[in-house]
Nucleic acid binder design. Structure first.
Length: 271
DNA sequence: TTCAATGTTTAGAC
DNA sequence: GGTCTAAACATTGA
């Protein structure tokens, strides 16, 4: 579940809780999550202080005092919980010198932790080739239009979820943004009118910032850094609402497959 | 028992 | 090169 709002929530909470703490020991119960030689990983992490926590797209970045960075992706079901209770999906535990700890859980085991040195850091993100950071002030209507112009044939929903186009939007928010904008998910970029592009742009900003404020969506497994669920689910208008009446016009919400993912929309409100 | 699920990557097709 | 699809990863719950 972690899309931008969920990762952003965890980032802010962890920044508050673990910045400045020193890692005494790291326990690894499922080594495939660690995309780095295990012995080296422990050597790099143990004994270091946490300098900062940041986010790029859906990645969480923990900066260590020795110049290394831990780059974490939660994929579908990852959780980072401060001082939580261990369970059978707890694959990593960072123990701090003050007696607190940070759990990394992952039911589906798709997530990962990578180690990146200061030297490799810029190169790493160039290689990842993330697009716009949607809540940044640098992401403007003008830059959005210019980028869209290069992807004329794409279907708009697939593009919103394309991390090299714009970073951080997943299936839930892509559906919600297009409902907000009144645009059908399978529309080709070249058919979009100017006002529709503007509405999509505003939808990106509005939906994502509202979802950050609500600490994200807990549809299944997502919890924040305190193990609590997010509060955006009651505000979801179309995602997984197939057959339910549209909140605006009472038409039945429809579902189609696009790029192997479910897309939900109101056939009357979205054109 | 079968299917779908929040994300990404890869292979292959046109 | 742009774009699309299916499959793979692992597990759960409907």
């Amino acid at each position: 579940m972690p899309e931008l709002p969920e990762v952003e929530t965890i980032k802010s909470q962890l920044d508050n809780k673990i910045r400045g703490k020193k890692i005494k020991k790291v326990e690894v119960n499922l080594s495939k999550l660690v995309r780095y030689p295990l012995k080296k990983f422990k050597k790099i992490v143990e004994g270091e202080k946490i300098i900062s926590i940041s986010r790029r797209a859906k990645l969480l970045i923990i900066e260590l005092s020795n110049g290394y960075y831990l780059v974490i992706h939660l994929k579908l079901s990852g959780q980072l919980i401060f001082n939580g209770e261990k369970n059978k999906h707890t694959h990593l535990v960072y123990y701090f010198t003050d007696g607190t700890k940070l759990l990394h859980n992952d039911l589906r085991q798709f997530g990962f932790v990578k180690v990146v040195s200061k030297k490799e850091f810029n190169h790493f993100f160039e290689k990842e080739n993330f697009g716009f950071e949607p809540l940044s002030v640098k992401f403007t209507l003008k830059s959005f239009k210019e980028a869209l112009f290069k992807r004329k044939k794409s279907r708009i929903k697939l593009l919103l979820m394309d991390q090299s186009f714009i970073g951080g939007i997943g299936n839930i928010y892509a559906n919600e943004i297009l409902f907000f904008a009144g645009v059908l998910p399978d529309r080709r970029v070249e058919t979009l009118k100017d006002v529709e592009i503007k509405n999509i742009f505003q939808g990106i900003k509005k939906i994502l910032s509202l979802a950050v404020k609500k600490h994200g969506s807990s549809n299944r497994d997502y919890v924040d850094a305190f193990g609590k669920k997010g509060n955006f689910v009651p505000l979801i208008k179309v995602y997984q609402k197939e057959g339910k009446p549209c909140l605006k016009c009472k038409s039945k919400i429809k579902k189609i497959k696009l790029g192997n993912r479910s897309s939900f929309f109101c056939p009357k409100c979205q054109k």
